[in-house]
Amino acid sequence: MKLVNVTNSYKQLVNKQLENTDAYFVKVYSAGNTTVVYTEAAQHAELLIVNKKRAVRKTEINEILTYVLKRIPKEKYDRNQISIIELKDVIEISIPMTSSLVES
């Protein structure tokens, strides 16, 4: 699976996320019919995985989560604290941070 950064195509979504949440960083990726919204805040990171054509596969969830976790320093999160909520065509993954992602 290849994730393509399509953030520039979702300017309104990104602006709304930045205005209405505690997020300071938002990226949108596409993998065919699957869209991934990654948001980062001081104490957590969130992933929203959406596919309106079919259910999101477990392998997709694992690949996307692995892709994101490679970009977060290992000492900043505890893998056992990650929560995954699975609905029909939407997956939400919450990654609580053990220390702030933002350097003071």
Rank of each mutant, 00 (worst) to 15 (best):
M1L: 10
M1W: 04
K2R: 14
K2W: 09
L3W: 11
L3K: 10
L3N: 08
L3E: 04
V4F: 08
N5R: 05
V6R: 12
T7L: 02
T7H: 01
N8A: 09
S9E: 15
Y10A: 06
Q12I: 10
Q12V: 10
Q12P: 01
Q12H: 10
Q12A: 13
L13C: 13
V14A: 00
N15A: 15
N15R: 14
K16N: 09
K16Y: 07
Q17A: 13
Q17N: 14
L18S: 04
L18E: 03
E19W: 06
T21C: 00
A23M: 09
A23E: 06
Y24L: 05
Y24I: 08
Y24A: 07
V26C: 14
V26K: 13
V26R: 13
K27I: 02
V28I: 15
S30I: 03
S30N: 15
A31H: 13
A31K: 13
G32Q: 11
N33Q: 12
T34S: 03
T35A: 09
V36I: 15
V36K: 01
V36H: 06
V37K: 12
Y38G: 11
T39W: 10
T39A: 11
T39L: 10
E40W: 05
A41H: 09
A42H: 09
A45T: 04
E46T: 12
E46G: 14
L47S: 07
L47H: 08
L48T: 12
L48S: 09
L48H: 02
I49D: 13
I49L: 13
N51C: 12
N51E: 13
K52V: 06
K53E: 15
K53R: 12
R54S: 14
R54W: 03
R54H: 07
R54Y: 07
A55M: 10
A55P: 09
R57Y: 10
R57W: 08
R57M: 06
R57C: 00
K58F: 03
K58M: 08
K58H: 12
K58V: 02
E60F: 04
E60Y: 02
E60H: 05
E60P: 11
E60I: 03
I61C: 06
I61N: 11
I61G: 07
E63Q: 12
L65Y: 01
T66L: 10
Y67G: 02
Y67H: 06
Y67T: 04
V68A: 01
L69V: 02
L69I: 02
L69D: 01
K70I: 00
R71D: 05
I72T: 15
P73N: 05
P73C: 05
K74H: 15
K76Y: 09
Y77Q: 02
Y77N: 03
D78I: 07
D78V: 08
N80K: 12
Q81A: 08
Q81F: 02
Q81E: 15
I82N: 00
I82A: 00
I82F: 00
I85W: 05
I85L: 14
I85G: 11
I85D: 14
E86G: 06
L87C: 01
L87K: 10
K88I: 14
D89C: 08
D89W: 00
V90C: 06
I91M: 01
E92T: 11
E92N: 08
I93M: 11
I93A: 13
I93T: 03
I95C: 07
I95Y: 00
I95D: 05
P96S: 04
P96H: 02
M97R: 07
M97V: 01
S99V: 03
S99K: 15
S99I: 03
S100T: 14
S100R: 13
S100P: 04
V102C: 04
V102Y: 12
S104W: 10
